[in-house]
Amino acid sequence: MSTDSPNDSAITGDVARADRIRNRHARRLLFTCASVTVITTVAIFAVLIDNAFSYFYGVTLHDAILGVTFEQQVSFSEFLTGTRWAPDHARPAHGVLPIVYGTLAITVGAAFVSIPIGTATAIYLSEYASPAVRSKLKPTLEVLAGIPTIVYGFFAISFITPLFISPLGNLFGHHVGRYNMLAGCIVVGIMTIPMVSSISEDAMSSVPDELRNGAYALGATKFDVSTKVVLPASISGVFASYILAVSRAIGETMAVTLAAGFQAQITGNPFDEIMTMTAYMVSMARGESAVGTVEYQSLFAVGLVLFVMTLTMNLLNDWIKRRYREEYQ
């Protein structure tokens, strides 16, 4: 039956041609899907910069490029150094610092809650808890991360502020209103605990037992092992979890809006109402009806600042992970 002639082997392209073409089409289509994610990133940059331009110059960047005349209406130096933020006011002020301060205050305050509690939780889960306890505790804590942030906002105004912060404020002689900085810090801190605990615990669990045993053999106690062996050995993962939590706190919107309020001011008093960048965005959102107004334009200017801040955090996180990755295999 077989000869050495190539003719009857039929292994050249034609047999499976239709299938191969279909494969190529599928591949192209799937690549299109994957490119959507890149387009999204590019579009975010483009949209934010394009519209933020209109906040400063009155026209969008693409209109400016197309030749629409424009003149600067808000100076960058006022935007970056001014200490009053009221772009929609009759006497407008364009200093973004108060709401940047609001965001940073919430972020730092939340870190004071999430980092100690999250780290201690991670140590307990990784070093002390039995597998049975861990298998219940970990998913329970992750439920905290899954609860919608609007619910945390509700929790702040219906529980934390009236039951804890008001009495505390009265104790210090401050009147505490419906909104206050402290409540915002606490709820954002709580909702970021699982990020810290989960990711830190993963890092701690991947520290090999040989290191622990080595320390125990030298007479170390569990406290020594946890704080002087495991924590240092997993520090990059632990640190990454902090940055992720901070990044999340910066972008957090609904909980801080409901908890901390709408008063753009730089204040050191934790019982005062403040406004974060995200809360400002919520308060200004008017959908399509507002195009061309300063409120609409300011949304994107603030959005750009917010985006740059979280992007910096994400890049920092990336860098730390690559730079300090511990490999235990």
């Binding site: 000869t3 050495d4 002639s5 190539p6 082997s9 039929a10 292994i11 050249t12 499976a16």
Partner: peptide
């Protein structure tokens, strides 16, 4: 060579080859 045709020739489709 499979029946005298080099399976690593450019015109050979590995999918078609595996069907044989």
């Amino acid at each position: 060579y499979f029946h005298g045709k080099n399976v690593y020739d450019d015109d050979v489709d590995p999918v078609a080859l595996r069907r044989k």
